[in-house]
């Protein structure tokens, strides 16, 4: 992930070229790297070794198991006793042909895209807002993290409580406003929207924290210079903050994507992916196949899970390529 690593330097460049002229161009250091003598590899790998060993120890086995599961025809019996026949891509074919595949794909895309967009936008707006210093700003920002202290089972159940068709607070509030009840969780046309709303709520603190840290890393001199040049707050945001925040934004969005793709507890607790698969994503489908019924279908469940991993990796590659391009340009 060298490319990632370099990203903050590279993209700081626009700031350096801009009107700000800080005494030292932070970008210069990034540019200078090729001239820097390479540290001995043993030192680099010495620092890296613990985490690589850790990855191998704790991630390789589960990942290997998941791949193995998806390539064999497991029954509950062969899961316990062994001897499941190797079936190659059979489970994947089963999954592709399943009538749930197309809707699940669509819901996964919508769920992920809409969640990401709103989480990021809200997180950024809040980060900018809270990085101004006013009374209670740090305390309030800290309070924004409270939703994270709750186990998902509790926060998702609370949402499900609030969105209940008959006794939920949301519908009674709408009722006072003269709007008829909405079947948030029980109507196929609303269930996906409901789980997206809850997921956005849960994702905002994450975006807020990361983007806020990113904002703090932007040198104040840049704002100062922009202000001297007569830029108003809006212009300062778009000309200084937003471009300089791009690297942090990229990491935030990528991580957000990875985490959103695998969200399943919220959806499962709120709607079970239903009614009639109307809020089923790949993550909940995988869970339902593997664990959601009395008779687990491990093979297809693992296959769906692996499809998700591949999707995330594809986005990871796109991200890395984009970074490379940005650097070389």
């Amino acid at each position: 992930m060298n490319t990632t690593a370099q990203m903050p330097d590279a993209s700081a460049a626009p700031g350096g070229d801009g009107p700000a002229k800080p005494r030292r161009d932070p970008a210069g250091t990034g540019r200078g790297t090729p001239r820097r003598p390479r540290s001995p590899q043993w030192a680099a790998w010495g620092f890296l070794a613990p985490v690589v060993a850790y990855l191998g120890l704790f991630y390789a086995y589960p990942l290997y198991r998941n791949i193995d599961l998806s390539l064999r025809d497991y029954t509950v019996r062969s899961f316990v006793q062994g001897g499941a026949p190797f079936t190659g891509l059979g489970n994947y074919r089963t999954v592709f042909r399943d009538p749930t595949f197309a809707p699940a794909l669509e819901h996964t895309v919508v769920f992920t895209a809409v969640s990401l967009l709103f989480q990021y936008a809200a997180g950024l707006a809040l980060a900018v807002f809270f990085s101004q210093h006013f009374r209670l700003s740090t305390t309030l920002r800290a309070l924004f993290l409270v939703p994270w202290l709750l186990p998902l089972i509790v926060s998702a159940s609370t949402w499900s409580w609030m969105l209940n068709s008959d006794s939920g607070i949301v519908n009674s509030t709408l009722g006072w406003a003269g709007i008829g009840p909405v079947n948030w969780l029980t109507s196929p046309s609303w269930s996906l929207a409901s789980v997206i709303i809850a997921n956005i709520w849960i994702g905002i603190p994450f975006n807020l924290v990361l983007l806020h840290s990113g904002l703090q890393a932007i040198p104040a001199t840049l704002y100062e210079a922009a202000a001297l040049d007569g830029a108003n707050a809006w212009q300062r945001f778009w000309k200084v903050t937003f471009p300089l925040l791009r690297p942090v934004s990229a990491v935030t969005l990528l991580l957000g994507l990875v985490y959103t793709l695998k969200v399943f507890d919220i959806i499962w607790i709120m709607t079970k992916g239903g009614p009639s698969d109307s809020s089923t994503t790949f993550a909940t489908w995988s869970y339902r196949l593997g664990f959601g019924t009395l008779l687990p279908q491990f093979g297809p469940g693992a296959a769906v899970g692996n499809i998700l991993v591949v999707i995330a990796l594809a986005f990871g590659l796109v991200y890395i390529r984009a970074q490379r391009k940005q650097m070389s340009s």
Binding site: M1, A5, Y59, P62, R65, L254, K262, S286, Y287, G316
Partner: peptide, 15 residues
């Protein structure tokens, strides 16, 4: 290694 780091995060918690 960085790429593996990304992949690692994709493995579902249950797994």
């Amino acid at each position: 290694v960085g790429f593996l780091m990304l992949a690692a995060q994709m493995i579902p918690g249950i797994i």
